[in-house]
Nucleic acid binder design. Structure first.
Length: 315
RNA sequence: GGACGGGUGGGUGAGUGGCUAAAACCAGCAGACUGUAAAUCUGCCGCUCCUUGCGGGCUACGAAGGUUCGAAUCCUUCCCCGUCCA
């Protein structure tokens, strides 16, 4: 990274699902001469459109949207991959002197971009296979005991039941031959040369839930089922990563005759509500966010945000 | 009118004399989370008080009475709900 880059502004919009980040992003881009960069682990995938709430071409209003539809469903998105792609996009925007406007639903990806990732090896499927096999063969708590031996400090921070995180921690220990906590302490490279302005959308929970529910109904009316059917018909494996996304797994179950549509609708609503809650938990901790209590498509909220950004030196 | 079965905390639902403010699950709330993150995991979850302790008080298993040292659990009556018979 070159050290002589001047500090340019970069806007980040954070908020739970259905809070109106996309609409706000387009609005800000129009007003401030920017382009939208999506920071979302699901909109990355081609073909999974309706359920991931990608803004339609008309909703995008001619504003370029980056990091949307860049992965095929067979690929696996990761925080590191997203970071790489985002850095490339940022370079391009810098050259063209366009304001980057991130719409961020995936907190981890945003953090990976802004604060960097430690120099940690990528996942190794072979190692994971072995670890999972050994989990099968041993009584509960086995992985946790292994980690305790490799890195007591890390073991303290991960619950014995959290297999996913345990596997990752053990994986890093094994691959680097060092305790994970040490590897992570070595630090990371934060994003340089950008002056980050964070805006948060925090609609009242009850209103947000209503919005979530009606949006799911709309998605279904727009042919979400047909989309899922078409994806399955295309020969895509039903184990592909994006079929794990909220809604896609439920609708797949409907199409496989495992559950009824009504049950799926309720399950989707519930899962989405919980997801929104987790997003809020994550983003509440995010440093330096200027919060606005409302939806991003509310003109009054938009005006307030534009005003704040103006005071910060934009527009 | 009669015969059974049942009424438990926001929901589903266990519990058949003390270990029960009441399992479990769901919902809800709060939280953690450096490459699966729309994932994964943790805590709380009747009210209340304080010297925050495996602490105290109060209220609670349809209602009211009763038996008992002690009842969600046993008895009586009543009220609801379901099924069946008339």
């Amino acid at each position: 990274m070159s050290k002589n880059k001047t500090l340019l502004p970069l806007v980040v919009v954070v908020g739970p699902t259905a809070s109106g980040k996309s609409t706000l992003g387009v609005k800000l881009a129009e007003r401030l001469g920017g382009e939208v960069v999506v920071c979302d682990s699901t909109q990355l995938y081609c073909g999974f459109d309706i359920g991931t709430a990608k803004p339609s071409p008309s909703e995008r209003r001619g504003i370029p949207h980056h990091l949307m539809d860049v992965l095929s469903p067979q690929e696996e998105a990761t925080a590191g991959r997203h970071r790489q792609l985002a850095l490339t996009v940022l370079d391009g925007l810098r050259q063209r002197n366009r304001l980057p406007i991130f719409t961020a639903g995936t907190g981890l990806y945003l953090r990976a971009l802004l604060e960097g990732l430690a120099d940690v090896p990528q996942r190794s499927e072979e190692l994971r296979e072995r670890l999972r096999a050994s989990v099968e063969a041993h009584p509960p708590g086995h992985l946790h005991r292994i980690l305790k031996r490799l890195d007591p400090e890390a073991a303290k921070k991960i619950a014995p039941a959290d297999e996913q995180k345990l596997i990752r921690a053990v994986e890093v220990c094994v691959l680097t031959r060092k305790p994970v906590s040490e590897v992570l302490r070595a630090g990371r490279t934060a994003l340089e040369a950008w002056h980050v302005l964070k805006v948060g959308l925090m609609p009242p929970r009850e209103k947000l839930n209503e919005r979530i529910h009606s949006r799911i109904d709309t998605m279904l009316e727009q042919g979400w089922m047909r989309e899922v059917q078409a994806l399955l018909d295309s020969g895509l494996s039903e184990d592909s990563k994006p079929f794990d996304f909220i809604g896609y797994r439920e609708l797949r179950a409907v199409l496989c005759g495992e559950i009824r549509l009504e049950a799926a609708r309720e399950a989707i609503q519930q899962a989405t509500r919980r997801y929104a809650k987790r997003q809020l938990t994550w983003f509440r901790r995010e440093q330096g966010v200027r919060w606005f209590s409302g939806f991003g498509d509310d003109v009054a909220v938009q005006a307030g945000i534009l005003e704040w950004l103006h005071i910060q030196g934009l527009g």
